[in-house]
């Protein structure tokens, strides 16, 4: 029981939905991506700001074709094309690389569960405990990759546990698979993140990550 409560307490109430307080490998990789992008973006913004401010200094040069050609070389070819292409190419490749790492690939450790969104509740099923169904709380083992098969019973919803991984939509007629993993046992807040009508704001759920013993107990029907 203590193990269940600790991560929540550590994270504090205000961070229970925070993407920048990751508690699983997917959310962790994305948080790193965010911090790097933030630093890069701040640097680029500062560069643009400095260039703009400097543009207001009295210029000493004589206008003419030669000066125009020089400006074109600096501003359009070097900055406009060279700089932007380099930065963006690097970022694109990195983004795709991280994206590949988050995919739900098969593996021996992987646990499969099902999540069905409906206005305004979530129902969960478990491949390892056929017939078992829970509402509002998804039970998973901590430290193991879990593939959530996401479906909808009515309109479009989205399954999102911010501290564990990104979100994936529940689209009527389709099953989308999202890989989540909790590093430590505990409760993690989940949300529906696609507008679904008047009950949308309260459309939430909880992910309860168990330690090994707790998970076995849950599968046996004792959880």
């Amino acid at each position: 029981m203590v193990a269940t409560v600790t991560p929540l307490a550590l994270a504090g109430c205000e961070e229970r939905l925070s993407t920048v307080h990751p508690a699983g490998p997917a959310a962790d990789a994305i948080a790193v991506l965010w911090w790097v992008m933030l630093i890069g973006a701040a640097a680029i913004f500062a560069l643009v700001a400095v260039l703009l401010v400097m543009a207001f200094r009295r210029s000493e040069e004589h206008p003419g074709a030669e000066a125009d050609a020089r400006h074109e070389r600096i501003w359009i070819k070097a900055m406009g094309l060279g700089f932007t292409l380099t930065v963006l190419a690097a970022l694109t490749v990195w983004g795709i690389y991280i994206g590949e790492r988050l995919l739900p690939r098969p593996g021996p450790e992987v646990v499969s569960v099902g999540a069905t969104g409906a206005q305004w509740t979530w129902r969960f099923t478990y491949a390892d405990a056929p017939g078992r169904q829970t509402e509002g709380v998804l039970h998973i083992p901590a430290g193991r990759p879990v593939d959530v098969g996401i479906e909808s019973a009515d309109v479009i919803h989205s399954f999102w546990v911010p501290r564990l991984a990104g979100k994936l939509d529940a689209v009527p007629g389709h099953t989308n698979v999202l890989r989540i993993q909790a590093d430590a046992p505990g409760d993690y807040a989940g949300l529906s993140a696609e507008f679904s009508g008047p009950g949308y704001t309260g459309h939430r759920f909880t992910v309860r990550a168990h330690d090994e013993a707790g998970w076995d107990a849950f599968l046996r029907g004792e959880g």
């Binding site: 994305i30 991506l33 965010w34 992008m37 973006a41 795709i96 979100k167």
Partner: peptide
């Protein structure tokens, strides 16, 4: 930033 698929998964909506 949000053109990056992984970050978009978190920031979308």
């Amino acid at each position: 930033m949000i053109a990056m698929v992984p970050f978009n998964f978190q920031s979308h909506d």
